[in-house]
Amino acid sequence: MNKRFFIDAWLMPLTTSDAVEMVKLAGELGYKAVAVEGNDEILKASSEVADRLGIELYRRRTINVNIKEKLYDELSKNRWSYELISVKSNERDVVMAALRDMRVDTVLMSHPSAPLVDRHMLSVTNNIVEVAFSDLLKYGYETFYRVLRLSSHLKKDRIRVVVSSCATNCFEMRSPRQLASVFFVMGVGSDRAIETVSGAIIEALRQNKAKLEGMLDTSGVWRIER
């Protein structure tokens, strides 16, 4: 039995039957939490299965924008409806804004059109950088190069990174060890590599869930119920 708490931070099923299968498979592979993106039906079906299997389920929304004002609009609309807000953009300005905005949880940096991480970005980075494993399958070297650059910053603890599968069906899902191997293979220590599928993001998601349920004040004070 695994003692670590593994999370797949991005499942993107296209149908409800896919959602059910994927959440079941996530349980088999050893995940104890998943973040699902989809419409209400998909989220409802996933939630029912997750409850039955004892898996924590979080709702996720990926904001795909290239204009800063649009990003702020989308954030104000969606922040209080989802536990995990992620931003994907091709524009450096938007990525920098997302990296420092407190309403954002993760910023996707693995797609080939994403700007490369440099020291200016690192100086403002407040949020978690996300690597989608499906980008590696889809784009190969382009993504590998970007992840390799991220790994050098991860080794020096300059950024926090999460690896998610971004799977749309069961065949794109991988076990936590395999997702962690992306950084393990780039010379990041095994403990630090495993932290990319079990570390910082879980605490952030639990806090977001508590905020949405009214259990945690925005100033960080927890409500204790008797």
Binding site: F133, R177, Q178, F184
Partner: peptide, 12 residues
């Protein structure tokens, strides 16, 4: 081991 783990995850 890391190479093999990574390669197994890339086989589609």
């Amino acid at each position: 081991l890391p190479y093999v783990l990574f390669s197994t995850s890339l086989v589609t």
